[in-house]
């Protein structure tokens, strides 16, 4: 369990980082918190020729919360985001989801952007990026571009960025008006990757009737998926909407896999249960916000 040989660079600026990445070519990998990358190296499941450690790059460690949304820099640790009250006010899913990411020691080191760049469909923050309809900013030698989540996640552990690139931030749009959120997951042990997780946003109309319902699931598909469940409950009063119907609809929309921890059927069961649970609580929150 020792990594194969690799070169190591720790550039002091973003430009320098991109230079090293360009010079090193295909075999170079960005190192952020190392909580996903280093285990892969140690188990020799990955053997990049060069690690480009971005931890010294200035300006990437901030969380900027504005009325429109929350921008999370590449070196912001999960623990930082979890405790950022301003960010939680603008987009409550951030704290709700990061609370489910691993254990404190890993949250202290692992970055939220790193987990998005890692594109693990079992990660909480990939799904939250999708659910909030977020995007990432990617710096390349050619400049900085914004990539919407749909165009970013390509497959399990696979994104659309190739060649020298650093994801400098992730952007999570603010919660729409008259909306509530909830996040819940079932894991075998506290802090483990979820067997199944669900994050939801419920938006009401001015009469407190359900206007829109969106849900994203964890450990269910190959890439983060967002499902619109509005049809099951559209126009129903928030206090007594048929959330079970939304759960049933969700179960028909997902296509989970079986692994050693859970069967596909069990995951589908959980999709229904978690959908129903989270929607009820998200709707209650939306109602509360209107009072």
């Amino acid at each position: 369990m020792k990594p194969a040989p690799f070169r190591y660079a720790d550039p002091g600026t973003l430009d320098e980082a991109l230079e090293v990445l360009s010079a090193e070519g295909e075999g170079a990998k960005v190192l952020a918190g190392g909580q996903s990358l280093l285990p892969l190296l140690s188990m020799r499941l990955a053997a990049p020729a060069t690690l480009v450690d971005i931890n010294r790059v200035p300006g990437l460690d901030t969380v900027e919360a504005t009325g429109d949304g929350v921008r999370v820099g590449a070196l912001v640790r999960h623990a930082h985001l979890l405790h950022d009250a301003a960010a939680a006010r603008i987009q409550p899913l951030l704290a709700r989801a990061t609370a489910n990411v691993a254990h404190p020691a890993i949250r202290n080191r692992g970055t939220t952007v790193g987990s998005i760049a890692h594109a693990d469909p079992s990660g909480e923050m990939t799904s939250v990026l999708a659910l909030t309809d977020g995007s990432v900013s990617v710096a390349t030698p050619g400049g900085v571009e914004t990539i919407a989540w749909r165009d970013f996640f390509v497959g399990p552990l696979e994104t659309s960025i190739h060649g020298p690139a650093v994801v400098t931030s992730a952007y999570f749009p603010a919660l729409p008006a008259r909306s509530g959120t909830a996040f819940s997951e079932v894991a075998r042990r506290k802090g483990d990757y979820a067997v199944c997780g669900a994050g939801v946003v419920v938006t009401l109309d001015e009469d407190r009737r359900v206007a829109a319902v969106r849900a994203a699931y964890i450990s269910v598909g190959l890439t983060p998926e967002v499902h619109d469940l509005t049809d099951a409950v559209a126009g129903q009063p928030a206090e007594k909407a048929d959330w079970a119907a939304a759960g049933s609809l969700a179960r028909t929309l997902v296509d989970p896999d079986t692994d050693i921890h859970a069967s596909a059927d069990y995951r589908r069961l959980l999709v229904g249960v978690l959908t129903e649970r989270t929607l009820a609580s998200a709707a209650a929150e939306a109602v509360g916000g209107m009072e």
């Binding site: 079932v186 075998r188 067997v195 921890h261 859970a262 069967s263 059927d265 069990y266």
Partner: peptide
């Protein structure tokens, strides 16, 4: 026995 097995 795990939850998925108990469900089955």
């Amino acid at each position: 026995i795990s939850p998925t097995e108990l469900y089955d």
